[in-house]
Design a protein around this nucleic acid. Structure first.
Lengths: 336, 336
DNA sequence: ATCCTTTCTGAATACGTATTCATTTATTTC
DNA sequence: GAAATAAATGAATACGTATTCAGAAAGGAT
């Protein structure tokens, strides 16, 4: 690999001039500029971004810390974030973390010198947040947020669940199960609040055996649903805290020979792409306009470009929208 | 941010010693090592990887050039690749490229100084391949490959399609449609070969109006399927070159009120996660053992760690395995 | 031609680390 | 205790770029 010094030699100029034709072309005489460009061409010169970063203290790279792509929601947000970053001339460093262990991420981010961070996999009281705050790295949370504020874009989670819950109650359901991830994530925390509230408003009981806050691994979800549906008394509806959970849930329900929604209604949240598929047609709640990932990315670049500190907090809460499809129906009166 | 020089000052040693406790701890006396570690702790020192990369000419970063995550196959491979890279102590820089434009990727890769490249989105005659070859960056293709060889891990594509085609013919199908991406990608090229061959072996015709090689955007696929199914004569089965295409295809088929497989059989390739979902149950063909992404990643790290040049070419062709589910059935004798 | 601007270019330096080489300090051997 | 060896450390340098500052070249006005 040839360096700017090689180019300089070949063009008979100084290295500084080579640097100039790259970063400030009009500041160098057209004649010599041509010589330099020609030399670059001949040597197949491509600038070393590492060296440049060392000087400018900027990498044109963002970090994305997301949940596993097995979850369609994260696949969609990741896709749009990476696309948008590319469009902005930025590279994206991705981490798909296990829900539980996000320990060394701070050092990873700091040492990589990324220009910004998009975080979805964050616990309510994650120390990472405070650390990032301290070092002034532009950072926006999406989907999940931390209790210490910061910039974020999230769904109005309590309302979202409230809407599905009311929808199901409106269909006559009284025995409603709730299947969620653990509440140390804001998403699951907030969504459970919405559920609890609406149930109470209607004087309905949250049966412990129908209410689960579990690890959102496929195996764990399958096991939980299987156990629940093997009890003597079945719920008439299941609300899942995410579409990803709902899909797995649906898989088990169908496997056990139950019909949706005749035997059991099912609803999710996120309005994932698969939810609208005609083989699935999941009732869910989404939000208007763009994907959340896109909005988060736009917000982040606003921080990066205009400077974080001046900016007042970006705190966007997307209005939820119930999307009724085919997995929820009137409660089966023959149900015990 | 504090540097190793700050640490050195605080600990009363030279910067070289600080560097040593990081890279060669046992070469420094335990006593002074402690002093240094303590200073690091106090200053919250985290090494600047950019600077380190400049010296070592290594970044512990790989680049992944993949198709859009909208395609479940790429979501799965990306997930496992990123996980595996992390496990190996490497970061992953991702690009989800549009099928058509992959022009400036070479400069992007070179300037970022990644230690290796995983490529799935590559055309048969992509110039990128030769460029990467020339600069000796470890590189392995997966899923798709280039005609100029190199390291790759792919499915035995002709056999894969041959298997589904024979399966459908065995079920009595004669009027078989084929829906594929464009053949300047090896995947689609090789798969179409398999289809053509088996059809010919059985003296069956590839009707032009039932055979499409199109851009694999959702809209384009939808339009194509819609048009095909609005013709007077319908195929009794559709083979899609990927599960992603098959899913979209299924969506349209169901939307038009046709039943699968009673009215029309449907099959894909890749054995994507959603294909096994009980709301879908797509007949498809996959391969044994690990995900392809994982195998590709393992191969790449072998190249990175053991050095590329010594190594003979890694060329892995995975044996396909037909997985019959519920979207393919006996041909409906009442079909016109 | 002289002086003054303006435009352009080169030398020098900084960024933060790893590494070589020489030097100091500690340890062993007789 | 001296000499020989081994272990530990520091000074200096390199990596490839951007940038400052000073100086050279070019152009304009008188």
């Amino acid at each position: 690999m040839s360096s700017s010094i090689d180019v300089a030699k070949k063009a008979g100029v100084s290295q500084a001039t080579v640097s100039r034709v790259l970063n400030n072309p009009q500041s160098v005489k057209p004649e010599t500029r041509m010589k330099v460009l020609q030399a670059m061409e001949q040597l197949q010169y491509v600038p070393n971004l590492i060296a440049r970063s060392l000087v400018t203290n900027t990498t044109r790279t963002i970090a994305l810390i997301s949940g596993s792509l097995q979850n369609g929601f994260f696949a969609e947000t990741t896709d749009s974030i990476v696309q948008f970053a590319k469009h902005k001339g930025y590279k994206t460093l991705v981490y798909f973390e296990d829900e539980n262990k996000v320990p060394d991420l701070f050092d990873l981010i700091m040492s990589s010198k990324v220009d910004g961070v998009l975080l979805s996999l964050i616990k309510l009281d994650d120390p990472l947040v405070e650390q990032l705050e301290r070092v002034k790295v532009p950072c926006v949370f999406f989907n999940r947020r931390s209790k210490s504020g910061g910039h974020y874009v999230v769904l109005d989670n309590p309302s979202a669940v409230a809407e599905v819950t009311r929808h199901l109650i409106g269909l006559g359901h009284r025995k409603i199960a709730y299947l969620s991830g653990k509440t140390d994530f804001s998403t699951f925390q907030e969504r459970s609040v919405g559920f609890k509230q609406v149930m109470q408003e209607h004087g309905l009981e949250m049966k412990p055996e129908w209410t689960s806050f579990i690890d959102t691994t496929t195996e764990e979800i399958e096991r939980t649903v299987f156990t629940m549906l093997n009890r003597p008394e079945l719920p008439t509806a299941i609300i899942c805290a995410t579409d990803a959970i709902a899909l797995i849930c649906m898989d088990i329900i169908l496997m056990m020979g139950l019909r949706i929604p005749q035997d059991i209604s099912l609803a999710g949240i996120d309005n994932t792409r698969m939810a609208s598929h005609r083989a699935v047609q999941l009732t869910t709640v989404g939000h208007q306009k763009f994907a959340m990932g896109r909005i988060a990315a736009e917000s982040l670049f606003e921080l990066i470009e205009k400077g974080d500190s001046e900016r007042s907090a970006i705190q966007i809460t997307l209005r939820p929208e119930l999307i009724v499809r085919k997995t929820t129906g009137l409660v089966n009166s023959s149900g015990s």
